[in-house]
Every structure is written in C-alpha cells, then in structure tokens.
Simulated assay, not measured.
Amino acid sequence: MEFNKLLSLSVSLVLILSVAESFDYNEKEIETEEGLEAMYDRWRSHHKVTEKSPERFNAFKATAQLVHNHNKLKKPYKMKINAFADMTIEEFRSAHADETLHNLKLPGPGCPACPACPNCPAAAAGPKDLPPRLDWREKDVITPVRRIPGCYNMGPALTSIEAINTIVTKEKLVLSQQQVVDCYPGGPMGVPTVYDVALTQGVATLDSYPETSARREKCDKSKFGKKLVTISGYEQLNKHDEEGVMQIVAEQPLIVTMDTSDEEYKNYAGGIYNGACGGWPKWVMLVGWDQDPDGTKYWIGKTTSFGEEWGEKGYVRVIKTPEGFCKMYSYGMRPFKTIETRNIEL
C-alpha cells in the first residue's frame, strides 16, 4: 500500500478520536429509517463529521444494526458505535489492516531477512516458569495509548521499541513516527522500516520531533533533540505455539497480527474478544495475559490505530488458545536492545 494513500483519512481520524467520548443511542432509533437518520446526524455532531452522503449513511446503518444485534446476544465481548461507524469495510481495511500479510504462509524458524544482530541475546537455554498472569503496564513499561497517524503498521513497531527501551534503560520515552517517515531514505513503510531506522540512525522523541502530518517531509536534524533511541537488532516471531509466545512476552512486549473479522473488530467495545476470523491481518502489541473470574484465559493487547475511544481505552482482550486465535501465533516481530546498545546522546 502506498503511504500517502492514507493521508487525509489518517489526519481526520486522529482529530475525531482525540475529542470523542462514547456515543449512546436509544433502541427505538434503530427501528425506523427516520430514527436511524436522526441517529446518524447526532453521531455526526458528536464526532464533528461534516460529510453527509447516502453512501456514508448506508455504512452507518449497517454498523448500527450490527452493533445493536450483537449486543443482544450473550457474547463475552461487546460492540459500540464508534468513530469508524460510517466507514466501509474496504476503507477500514485500507486504513487499519495489513494487506501485505493477507494469506501469509507460516514463516519458518528464525528470520533470514532481518539484519545480522551480533549483540542480540542468545537463545535461552530452556523454558522459564511462567506466572499465571502478567501485565507490562503494571511495571511502568508501556507508554500511553495514542493514535499514531500514517501507516497502520508503523505504530506497533514504535511502541515495541518504546517498551524494550524502557525495560533496558528505565527511561520511558515516546517516539516520533514523523522522524522515521522523514528520515528513511525511501522504500515501503512498515514495521521493518521503523526497526531499520532505530538500528541504523536512531529514533527521535515525539517531544523533539512532533507529528505534523502523515506525509513525508524533509528530514530535519535540528529536531532530533538531545537523544535518539536505538536498538541492537530485530527478528520475526520464531515460536508459533502458545507457550513459546508466552516465553517471549514474559521477556518483552511482542507485536503480532490477527486475521479477525473486519466488521466485528472495528466495533469492539470491551470484554474478551473471540469473534469471527477470516478478516485481514491487524497488528496488536501483546503486553501480557490473564484470566477472568470464570477461568477464561486471554491476552492483553495494545493498539496504535484507534486511540483511547476504541475498545478498553485503546486495549483489547483476546481469547487465549493453544493454536493462536485468528492465526495470531503465525506472524510477529520484536526488537532487541542490550545494555551495551546505548542511545545516541546529542
């Protein structure tokens, strides 16, 4: 996907998601066309959406009816009418799903395509004892949820670098996607792009190099500030079973993809997600695992595409299964950082 294709949609959605609170409706509004149209106008006012068209209204109607019908069922998760309610599935996929990974075959062990990493830690001698629950947020490692504009798959890479940098240096820094976009010499934008910049150049903090747009600007080294965050290397997920993924997440947060239903996932409101699979891959960063009072086990995932209004303040709980819900053990990536790999002081 071309990076600039998402410019206008990304900028408008970040404005919407930064101001929106939960949108509520009356059941009677769903019952008639007039009620739905009034509800649509109220939703537009709520989210400060000026565009109105029959196509947008039809997409909104379909979303409203899907959410309403789902929430009447006894499911372990709920949906809500959020800022994406008037988006078609094609638009949602374009903005938030990774088409390059669609129908991806399971990768083999290791990651031959990744740069050599002589400073990366050696593989553990054996499995560790795993706790019944883990949440990296409780260790003050995870940066705040925010919607990172531009390519959907760059945000997760940034947040994973933020996490490993905090684990190693004990300094929690929020990083700038704009600097990555501006200072990368060219080629496709994605997870490896962010890791390559961190590996070869370093990534500036958001305070120093603020987000100004979702498009490429001139690389401005005067905005690099006092520090560039670096990594030692990175690798693809090389353990494709539940315990193997838990072993990795016990060491550091891990970004993975899930082939979840596009219609259901975009309207997720909270609870343990176990909806239909078969959609296009979406990135999420696993920050831990737990179980609810009835014993249902789940992963805790952080998103970077939707902001705090989506899901559980930007997080999703996903049912934990041995085979990996919606292929979530099939593809993932993580950066490495050793204590010897110091950030660049400017």
Rank of each mutant, 00 (worst) to 15 (best):
K170M: 11
L9F: 12
N26I: 10
N153Y: 09
S222N: 12
R215D: 10
L158S: 05
E309W: 08
D196A: 13
L130K: 05
P144R: 05
K320T: 00
Q177A: 11
A125H: 02
K223I: 02
E29G: 00
R334W: 13
E51Y: 03
D290Q: 06
P210D: 05
E235I: 04
D86T: 04
E309K: 07
K218Y: 09
P185Q: 09
N153C: 14
S22D: 11
L158W: 04
V287Q: 03
P185D: 09
L286A: 05
P132F: 06
M328A: 07
K266L: 15
Y184H: 15
P188N: 04
I248E: 10
Q247I: 02
G110L: 12
G301S: 07
G126T: 06
C120E: 04
S213V: 00
W283N: 06
G311C: 12
S22Q: 12
W280A: 10
E90D: 15
V316A: 12
P54Q: 06
P118W: 11
G35L: 14
Y209T: 00
P121R: 09
E55V: 10
G270C: 10
I248P: 00
V191W: 07
W43H: 03
K170V: 01
V67A: 13
H46E: 02
Y268W: 05
V67S: 08
Y77P: 03
A214C: 15
L17P: 00
M328L: 13
T88I: 07
I272D: 02
Y298I: 01
G332R: 07
M328Q: 09
F23R: 03
T88Q: 11
A157I: 04
V141Y: 02
L199Q: 07
E51I: 04
E242R: 10
T304I: 03
D182W: 07
K61V: 12
H96M: 13
R137A: 11
E51P: 00
E308Y: 02
D140F: 08
E34F: 07
L104S: 08
L346N: 11
S94V: 01
F57L: 15
E217F: 11
P112T: 04
D182E: 08
D135N: 15
M189A: 14
L175I: 01
T303Y: 09
I272G: 04
E340M: 10
K223Y: 08
Q178H: 11
V249D: 01
I339A: 13
E217Y: 06
N26F: 13
I148P: 00
I164E: 04
F92P: 01
L175A: 03
G278C: 08
G324Y: 08
K72F: 13
E263W: 13
P109S: 12
Y184P: 00
Y195S: 05
